[in-house]
Nucleic acid binder design. Structure first.
Length: 577
RNA sequence: AGGGGUAUAGCCAAGUGGUAAGGCACCAGGUUUUGGUCCUGGCAUUCCUAGGUUCGAGUCCUAGUACCCCUGCCA
């Protein structure tokens, strides 16, 4: 008691020894691992695994599991395997295997030489099955799938035994071998565990271990025509790999007694399964089935559409591995079903990008600004800081001239209260350049503002005044003559509802797709330095948000930027009041 | 007439009988050549409900309630 308290304190101190950083938050799995380490349960080993099925792309929910499994192994000096649960050849593809490996690597984790496939164990699993048959613990059933369902009973009524349940061992052995040898058509027979048809836990009512599937597997080809069910393959795969802590999501909790039964009957090493709640995020969907539908029905451009919660989508959007890892630590871990606010994810990426992104000036919605007292042919190169949060990022030169673009939102002919951007007679600072006072507004026949004129104060070069006078507003600008054009893609939540799965009023998640989730700006104006932008560069467009070149569509002669996330905007908040 | 889980603030989440951590969001101020960042302060007399045990209960006991998962030859 006092011993365990002391240990807890030590752990906390260790996690917090930087002095000011947040200590690694405790969670129930760390507690279990530490207890196991203390009691010597697995001889001090910590060996986890991340076991995806290659039937889709990884999403942010998987990232939580990846960070958990690899992170815990790292933290406790253990190992983490990458293992594909490829037991269903009808749904799995090599494309998914490759994307999953790329995503795990990108997230920053390394399985070293421990890349495994459940299909590596098909032979061993077959032998295990024979072992159970010989022990009278498994049998070949000729019932159809409909009949098996009927015989299974219901949640409140026990099932009844299959008429084939008591076949002699020799017959089972013969039939099972012939199943493997391809003598029977799909669906004609299965191998079932002989447990208890009246168990209150339905997973124990003689679960199917093998089904006949004359399908080509992406790794084993046509070698097999019987394939193990997940429930039969998973626990033994963990056992074979010597996994100490097998972490999975809540829905497998009631399957655990089955996994335990298998390893017990087989007499093999028993890993310890621990279940945790999967991640849900609001304003998006996380099920692979739904993500697949969005892709197949072209509601998005693909698995890597920047609006998708997939890792490939987030990567293309400009999210960093650091941000995602930090997010996953931030949200904690528990067994209660919960939905994390997407604002928390956005916070995580802003926090990372604030430290790293180079500040640049860009104008999304250009309005011409003419400086009347600045010579027509003069060009100045003004020095600009690349990142005020990181002195080592250095500075760059930005060209300044008589005709500039500013954002239309930064000018108001009739400014509301507390507006401190440009307005007639008002003075603002052009970032890194000069103070300017608005002198004139030019409109077209329809009354639209086409141009704003101003005068600059040459004594404020660099954006400082000698006389100590203050300006409230600072706006970014781009020299018209030097500007580079670019396409900009602004993203919003993919769904209009916090919970798109909420179909209480009869809707389908597709009914809540946000029609404005993508807004394209064809001709934004940017400072010349951005012409060299390439995939992987991280930018902050001053006062707008964080942006990255689109990895698929951006070219030197046609720049395309994705908005990762906007900057926080307290002015927008004030306006709403 | 089943089994397995979970309930702590608007959203996550610590807490393991000694008097409710932390983060996000929100609110109020300060700094600022980004209405960004940063800094300071505020934000649960109460932990699903009702009883009980105890000097002391979010933690223990009893009885309820709500929600999630399980009736694929999916994972």
């Amino acid at each position: 008691m006092s011993d365990s308290e002391k240990n807890r304190e030590n752990t906390t101190d260790t996690g917090n020894n930087s002095g000011n950083g947040p200590s690694a938050p405790s969670n129930f799995i760390r507690t279990i691992i530490e207890e196991d380490l203390r009691s010597g349960k697995h001889k001090g080993r910590v060996h986890t695994r991340f076991p995806p099925e290659p039937n889709g792309y990884l999403h942010i929910g998987h990232a939580k599991s990846i960070c958990l499994n690899f992170g815990l192994a790292q933290e406790y000096g253990g190992k983490c395997n990458l293992r594909f649960d490829d037991t269903n050849p009808t749904k799995e593809e090599m494309e998914y295997v490759e994307s999953i490996m790329a995503d795990v690597k990108w997230l920053g984790f390394d399985w070293e030489d421990r890349l495994f496939f459940a299909s590596d164990y098909f032979g061993q699993l077959y032998d295990y099955a024979v072992q159970l048959i010989k022990a009278g613990k498994a049998y070949v059933d000729d019932l159809s799938s409909d009949e098996i369902r009927e015989y299974r009973g219901t949640l409140t009524r026990p099932g009844k035994n299959s008429p084939y349940r008591d076949r002699p061992v020799e017959e089972n052995l013969d039939l099972f071998r012939r199943m493997r040898d391809g003598e029977f058509p799909d669906g004609s027979r299965v191998l079932r565990a002989k447990i208890d048809m009246s168990s209150p836990n339905i997973n124990l009512r003689d679960p199917v271990m093998y089904r006949i599937l004359h399908a080509t597997h992406h790794r084993t080809g046509d070698k097999w025509c019987i394939y193990p069910m997940y429930d039969w393959a998973h626990g033994q795969s963990d056992s074979i790999e010597g996994i100490t802590h097998s972490l999975c999501t809540l829905e497998f909790e009631s399957h655990r007694p089955l996994y335990d039964w298998f390893v017990e009957e087989l007499g093999i090493y028993a890993p310890q399964q621990i279940e945790f709640a999967r991640l849900s995020l609001n304003y998006t969907v996380m099920s692979k089935r739904k993500l697949l539908k969005l892709v197949r029905d072209k509601h998005v451009s693909g698995w890597d559409d920047p609006r998708m919660p997939t890792l490939s989508g987030l990567r293309r959007r400009g999210y960093t591995p650091e941000a995602i890892r930090n997010f996953s630590e931030m949200i904690g871990l528990a067994k209660a079903n919960s939905t994390v606010d997407i604002a928390q994810l956005e916070y995580a990426v802003r926090e990372d990008l604030n430290k790293r992104a180079l500040r640049m000036m860009a104008v999304l919605n250009p309005l011409k600004l003419v400086i009347e007292n600045y010579p027509e042919d003069k060009v100045e190169e003004l020095e600009a800081v690349n990142n005020p949060e990181d002195e080592s990022a250095g500075t760059r030169m930005v060209p300044f001239s008589r005709e500039l673009y500013i954002d239309r939102e930064d000018f108001e002919e009739h400014p509301p209260k507390k507006y401190f951007r440009l307005a007639p007679g008002k003075e603002v600072r052009l970032k890194h350049a000069y103070y300017v006072i608005c002198t004139k507004v030019i409109k077209d026949a329809a009354g639209n503002i086409t141009e704003v004129h101003c005068t600059h104060d040459p004594a404020t070069r660099g954006g400082w005044s000698q006389d100590g006078r203050k300006v409230k507003g600072t706006v970014q600008w781009v020299s018209a003559r030097h500007a580079v054009n670019a396409e900009v893609r602004l993203y919003d939540h993919l769904f209009t509802r916090a919970n798109p799965d909420d179909n209480k009023d009869g809707g389908d998640f597709l009914d809540y797709l946000n029609p404005d989730s993508l807004q394209v700006i064809k001709e934004a104006k940017m400072e010349p330095a951005l012409a060299a932008a390439k995939t992987g560069d991280l930018y902050q467009f001053l006062r707008i948000g964080y942006f990255v070149p689109d990895s698929a569509d951006s070219r030197p002669d046609h720049l395309v930027f994705n908005r990762t996330v906007s900057l926080k905007d307290s002015w927008a908040k004030i306006q709403q009041k």
